[in-house]
């Protein structure tokens, strides 16, 4: 199948071809790949795609997944609006 049709990160629409291109340009850090294309930075915060991307990076670099610098997740884990936060505090 065409790598540019295989979507690894749905939130940010990043394909296998995009990740390969970055790896081929010489990037060997998943953190830098993330910063370059925003994979794992979408609304699901990488819950769907982090493993998939890490596996691709590991495979390309002939490393194990444990050796890849996988980004950490940040709060808030569940998306929340500023309006909801104001409500918790008794309104504006």
């Amino acid at each position: 199948m065409d790598d540019s049709k295989i979507i690894l990160c749905r939130c940010e629409n990043v394909t296998l071809a995009d990740i390969r291109k970055l790896l081929e340009s010489g990037m060997d850090s998943m953190q830098e790949i993330k910063k370059a294309c925003r994979c794992t930075m979408g609304p699901c915060q990488g819950r769907t795609c982090k493993e998939l991307v890490a596996r691709e990076v590991a495979r390309y670099l002939h490393k194990s997944v444990e050796e890849v610098d996988i980004p950490v997740s940040r709060i808030p884990i569940k998306p929340i609006t500023l309006g909801q936060i104001n409500e918790f505090n008794g309104g504006v």
Binding site: P43, Q45, R74, P76, P79, I80, T81, L82
Partner: peptide, 11 residues
């Protein structure tokens, strides 16, 4: 209007 948008990350 920004009261209605989801905050997805905070750092």
């Amino acid at each position: 209007a920004l009261g209605n948008l989801n905050v997805i990350r905070h750092w």
